[in-house]
Design a protein around this nucleic acid. Structure first.
Lengths: 264, 264
DNA sequence: CGGATTCTTGAGGTACCTCAAGTGCGGTGG
DNA sequence: CCACCGCACTTGAGGTACCTCAAGAATCCG
């Protein structure tokens, strides 16, 4: 676990978007649309989403995008970059809940409950599509397909968190690690961020440890052990999967299922 | 954790509703409606829900209502009784994700993803309101308020699971226990199942252990320790909270927030 | 009343933790 | 271009919180 997180460390400053808003680009030419894993919009939906979208912003690596307990004015979709979702648990302990990659929605909790129940922080510089929270009900009223998608995305998060709960609650360190590695690799693959069996990512061993509920030291030792077994390679920001069979076996999972998922 | 769960134990039989369907009662007179924590319907919504509802069934204690990996034909709301949501993790290890009480929705995952990602099992005899999955899209098309509620409920589950993740990943045994006890008590209180500071519930120490990612033995010892500290009393199916201050302190939480929540 | 759960307690082992002290590397400034 | 700094990673040593195994007591149920 993370010890000694400075309570108000420099990477906990409020999200001040790096600059002036970027040009309000066309949703029809949204780069996410190229991803075959993401579902297509109808013309009417596309037109609505275009109006729903307020701006595009860029958030610097290390900045907080949304903070636990605060009310966010907007809803975001990640266009590019990596973010991390976590909660603090008194005295510098941190639990990582998930990661956000391109295509992921951020801030739904705030839109529904009037405040966030987790913090979302940029791991790299992140480009975000900004949506107008106040139009949420219009979305529900006029575009049942999009409304359904929002439910779908929320339920998807819930399923993922359930699996993480199994991971942390029931598996030994090596199994947890195997699971997380496969999880990350699969998510990245769907987002088109992998090349064959390697993945470039901004995740530190500390992030990994906090996601697994293990100490950094033990995470490191487990990582080395896994390397010694010839299952992976983990060099600063670069993960290579060497034996997916063995990893799946350690994680006690069969395989990962594919499906076209929605986004906004 | 649960060791030696027989892979196909007697309480894992498919859900065969105990009997003939009960009389198709009026949603307008739904007993849940008495609970002030649950939001009111508009006349049109009430009329829709009445048609959405197919039947009422009763499931015996110990039976599985929905099984992980299977596709469920229906969506349910708990009218009465307790259920438990869990996932297995190879060789008799089980992770409890949450509990379902009156007013809770069951089977949304199956409706959205075509299969369940958790098992839901009746802890007591459970009375369920049965909804027609095939009308889901009609719900989204015609009743944006209800659609919003479904998203709300999914996001709520997700928030709860995030908190459980913090619990299991970051807290020592006594803190985990304090947290779960407060969580259960609060949920039960909202469902109107508590009387002052005591709660009658069908949860065993094994269920508790599996919810916390601890062994039964250690759960028991921690429970006794907590009793010795004068914080709680735990007698078979009966929980009494003696010192909520201390418990909150151990769990490192401030207080629990109230809000009117939706149901269907 | 007997059998099956559930709870309780003790004893001993170990997986993971904390503390501590490096090492390596990438970025920055002189 | 090199020297330095800070952060991420690595490794060892020793402690402990939690685990497993085991056996018995209490309670429930038919």
């Amino acid at each position: 676990m993370t010890r000694n997180h400075p309570p108000a460390s420099s990477n906990n400053k409020p999200a001040r978007p790096r600059g002036r808003d970027l040009p309000h680009t066309q949703c029809a030419r949204c780069p996410l649309r190229a991803n075959p894993n993401l579902r297509k919009f109808s013309a009417a939906e596309l037109e609505f989403v275009q109006r729903f979208k307020i701006a595009e912003i860029e958030v610097q690596a290390g900045r907080v995008i949304l903070r636990d307990g605060e009310r966010a004015p907007h809803l975001y979709t990640v266009l590019d970059g990596w973010a991390i979702r976590y909660k603090f648990a008194g005295e510098g302990r941190r639990q990582v809940l998930n990661f956000a990659l391109k295509g992921d929605l951020i801030g739904l909790q705030s839109a529904l409950f009037d405040k966030m129940h987790q913090t979302v922080e940029a791991l790299t510089d992140v480009r975000l599509c900004v949506f107008d929270r106040k139009r949420m009900f219009e979305l529900y009223r006029e575009h049942p397909g999009l409304a359904y998608d929002l439910t779908w995305l929320a339920a998807q998060e819930k399923t993922i968190l359930g699996e993480h709960l199994v991971n942390i609650g029931q598996r030994p360190a090596i199994g947890r690690l195997a699971y997380i590695i496969l999880f990350l690799f699969d998510r990245a693959r769907r987002a088109g961020l992998t090349s064959s069996n390697t993945l470039e990512m901004p995740i530190t061993q500390e992030d990994l440890a906090d996601a697994m509920g293990l100490s950094i030291v033990h995470t490191n030792k487990t990582l080395r052990r896994m390397h010694a077994l010839g299952l992976i390679e983990w060099r600063r920001n670069r993960l290579t999967i060497l034996d997916i069979e063995q990893l799946s076996h350690l994680a006690e999972i069969e395989s990962v299922t594919a499906q076209q998922r929605p986004f906004i």
